[in-house]
Write a protein that binds this DNA or RNA. Sequence first.
DNA 1: CGCTAATTTGACCTTAGTCAAATTCTGTGG
DNA 2: CCACAGAATTTGACTAAGGTCAAATTAGCG
Lengths: 229, 229
Amino acid sequence: MIDKFRFDNALQIRSEWQRAIWGQILSEQLQNQELKHSFITYKKGAQLFQEASIPRGVYCINQGMVKIFKRGDEGKEQIIHIAKAGEMVGFRAMFTEEPYKVGAEALEESNICFIGKEDFLSLMDTNPVLRNGIIKELSKELADRADFITNMAQKSVRERLAFTMLILMDVFDKQPINLSREDLANFVGTATETLIRLLKDFKEEGIIEVQTRKIFVLQRERLLQIAGK
Amino acid sequence: MIDKFRFDNALQIRSEWQRAIWGQILSEQLQNQELKHSFITYKKGAQLFQEASIPRGVYCINQGMVKIFKRGDEGKEQIIHIAKAGEMVGFRAMFTEEPYKVGAEALEESNICFIGKEDFLSLMDTNPVLRNGIIKELSKELADRADFITNMAQKSVRERLAFTMLILMDVFDKQPINLSREDLANFVGTATETLIRLLKDFKEEGIIEVQTRKIFVLQRERLLQIAGK
DNA sequence: CGCTAATTTGACCTTAGTCAAATTCTGTGG
DNA sequence: CCACAGAATTTGACTAAGGTCAAATTAGCG
């Protein structure tokens, strides 16, 4: 299911604390030790957890991609984040001791390792690296969201689309961006029709190339320029 | 500067970890112990810290009110949060070990207790209540910001204004809301002129009463209804 | 191959931003 | 206490961005 090769290469571990968790999982796999966890494969479109449900543990993405979203009053989704292999989702609400305020859904077939709340929390108690890493992570995400809010408030949809595509280039990492128009619109925070018109503009300006769902970015520079700052 | 009365009454302590800090400060005041800290009074408009500066510690608001904001590309502020007495600001960026991504400015004359980074971090190391409280706090704020983002993306300015006024009723706690039109607009995320027009609407609908800068909410129910959800 | 869901286009209209000008406040010095 | 300069607020006129609704087209799947 997971092996040293994947751990070191395919998973894009960005921080010490994530490495600590994956290290645990990996050693369990190999040596069968104490941290209970289980791998589950979610089909595209399957929910990991829903808004208002009770957090029971942490979802570590081994393979695949997961969108984190919130539904507005009229049911329209606002995508807050797209998590890829190596990332962990579902633990933020776990700390609040309240129900989830966001939902999580697999964007493609995803293999995910689940660690129960108790296990995760006790690991945190005994592991200062993990603990401090998580505090750092949460704080960084707060800064990112301040940015997100400011962008929403002050930038045009065109600017936000450019910004979003830059984020997605990173999420999809070399692959073409491959999302439904609706998800794309819900990440940018606009109507699907508006998104489509702007994609067309980008296409006509030669910034991107489109093959049905797949979007290839041809001119990253221009996106940076349009996104501003 | 601070006494038992203020601690128990005037400061609105909302969580265990904040109580732990204020308890420390208070006991220092009384018994002159080890946690170094100093009280400073900031005039209205004074900066506690600026975007891009290096975090050096935590600011505990003893009296007053502080806006946390981010500047967009054209220099326009987006207010992310308004902190009141009892709250602590400036520690989130401290954890990231990066420069501040937001600025903080006193909205009125404010008395603030500063605790240096080292002192605060070592207190955290030895105090699990504080540590866990902070993790919980950061997680809750992440959820709030997901909300904020969704509101920005999906609600009209009118709806956001109603929502913002509800938040401000809590911040100003019984007092009339007293902010410049510009700050109000920058919190709602709109142009000052638009904000003014909408305030006028609210006034004409009998939802609020206005005395120059002071806004009195007459019909909280209607605000809830307009804000939606 | 056919059916459903997703995408795209067109027409229209509302919301909210911009710019300029008028008015009102506020703090300061006389 | 009053006058006044500079800010802040308010109003008006105009414009543009982007949302909505309906219809047409295309893609994807069984």
